[in-house]
Amino acid sequence: MNRATRDPFGETLARLGKTDERIVVLDADLSESTRSAKFAEACPERFFEMGIQEANMISTAAGLASTGKIAFCCSFSCFITSRFDQIKVSVAYNNARVTIVGTHAGCGVGPDGYTQMALEDVAMLRTLPNLAVLQPADDLETTQIVEYLIGQHDGPAFLRLTRQKVPRVHHENYRFAYGRADRLREGSDLAIIGTGATVHAALAAASRLGDEGISASVTNIHTISPLDQDAIGQLAAETGKLMTVEDHSVIGGLGGAVCEALAATHPAMCHRVGLREFGESGSPEELFAKHHLDAEGVYREAKSFLERLG
């Protein structure tokens, strides 16, 4: 099952919106692309087309939340998260029940090029102490995260979604647990940690490493903030060698968060795979290959990391 995570997002929102009048959705002229149009179709009276006004949209959502609504603000992640001040002051500092939904995350957006790519969004939003940073790895996880945000999460959140299709990595009986690392494969030589669109590649690379007698575990981090520090410490204790893989800058995102956790809990070597430069145009597959985010790239990064450590 290959699906872009924005698809189950829109479907779940529309399904829950029909019976939960607290849900309101805002979009900034990208509702077809973010899939919030599904909600607009189901609940037109609670959908707000804000035009190309991301700052106004975010602060407005905070106001809606203060009257008991559960608000979702949608746009490409690059455009919505760059209004950091509005997310910081209007949403987070008001502890507003607003989810910032950033679709088309990372270089996976492809041919549109760098200005449409959010490569810094996790790094920025992770600094807000009460804002959850969530990135699902597949359709199953996306659906459950949206259900969690509406049913249980009482505060601000950032939901990072893909434009491109990603393969399913979970079994049908998978249960999402907020704030808990999701161990997908056991291993004792190396711990690979992925998030979002890179989890599938991490699994494929670990399988190939296994064929060569290298035992690599794979962990999916859907909740980047607050990070499951205990799980990271546990991985360090098991292997002493960690490698993060994300479609994001190597600075401040999953890799940064894991290194912070290691420094605080269980010092270990950590190699960060991600973007080290501006993005550019190309197909998502070409860009994932270039930045070593596909199965081949993750495999090669793991090999060279292990060789470097000896």
Binding site: V24, F48, A55, N56, M57, I58, S59, T60, A61, A62, G63, L64, A65, S66, T67, G68, K69, A71, D85, Q86, K88, V89, S90, Y93, N94
Partner: peptide, 21 residues
């Protein structure tokens, strides 16, 4: 009723409150 201090955001928040009410 709203945390403010970064200028220009309060009116948008007021709009959201108004629509929510």
């Amino acid at each position: 009723d709203a945390s403010t201090g970064s200028l220009g955001q309060g009116l948008s928040v007021a709009q959201g409150v108004g629509i929510g009410l």
